[in-house]
Amino acid sequence: MTKSQRLFEVYRTGLVILISLLIAMVIILLVSEEPGEAMKLFLIGPLDSLRHIGNVLEMMVPLLFTGLAVSVMFSASQFNLGAEGAFFFGAIGAAFIAVNWNLPPVIHPTVAILWGGLIGSIFCGIPGLLKVKWGSSELVSSLMFNYIAYFFGLYLINYFLRDVNAGAMVSHRFVETSKLIKIIPKTRVHFGILIAAVMVVITAIFLFRTRWGYRIRVIGTNIRFARYSGINTDRAIILSQVIGGFIAGMGGSIELLGMYRRFEWQYLPGYGWTGVIVAILARNNPVYVPVAAFFLAYMRIGADIMSRSTDMPNEFVAIIQGIIIILIAATSFLSKQRHKMVVKEAMS
C-alpha cells in the first residue's frame, strides 16, 4: 500500500465511524424519552471521570488480545472464529492454577497466563489442523469448538473448582499471589494492559518482520502463489491458528486474573466476536489494533454509562458494531473515489 492509499483507508474508516455514530444518534432519537441526556452520556460519558476513563482502559485489555488473535488467524485467510472459545477456555485453565497452586507472586500469574495461552493454542490449532489435513471447514469446526469450550469449561468449574459456600455458581477464590496488580490508583486498570502493549509489538514484529509472518501473509493474499513459491502452507496455516489461539487464551487468563476474584462467567463473554470487529477495523494489522480496541471500548463504556442513568438499553451498541463491520468490509464502499485516486497517482 502506498502512503496515499493508506491515508485513504484512514479517511474511509473515519467516514464509516461517522456514519455509524450518526445511526446511533438516530436510534437514540427514535427510542429515548431523553435523547439529549442519552447522547451526551454516550458520547462524552467515558471521559467525565477518572473512574470512567479507567473503565475504558479495562475494557480495552480483552479486546486488544482477541483483536490481535483474530488478526493473526485472519492474516492467513482462515476464518477461524474460535477466539471466543479460546478466550473462555484459557481463562478456565488459568483459574485452575490460580485456585489450586501456591507460587511466589510474579511467577504465579506468569504460569497461569502461559497455561491459559497453551490451552487456547490447542483450541484454535485443532480447527486449523482439521482444515489442512482433511479440508474440514475451519469456520464450522471452530464455531462448534466454542460451544464445546463453553459447556466443558462450565463442567470443569462446577465439578472441580466450585465453591459450594458461595451461593452462586462460582469457583473458589484465587490465591492472592496469582492476581495481577492494579497500576492506576482509583481504577481497576491492571498490569494486563502493559502485557497487552508488549503483545501488540511482538505480534506486529512477528507478522511483518519475520519469515513465518511473511509466509502467513503471503498465504492470506494468495495461497496458490504461496504454494508455488515453495512455502509449506500447511505448517504456516497451523502456526497462525496456534499463535492466534495462544494470544486469545492469554487474554482470557489476564482478564480473569486482573479483574476477578473468582471464576464467575456463566456465559461466553463475547470478546472473541468483538475481536473480529477489532481485527476488521485494524485491517488485521497489529499496529492499528489498539486504536480499534480503544474505539470499541469507548463506545461500549459510553453505552453502559448511558443505560445506567437513562432509558436506553446498552445492547444497541451491537447494532452499531454490525453496521461498522459491514461498511468497513464492503470493498465497494467508496471504491470509485479510491479508483480515481489510484488513477490520478499513476498519471502524475
Partner: peptide, 19 residues
Amino acid sequence: LKTNVILAAVAINLIAIGG
C-alpha cells in the same frame, strides 16, 4: 457492497444477538 459474505454474516449475527 462486496462485503466478504462471512464477515457480513458475522455482522448480521452480532446485530441479531444485541438487536
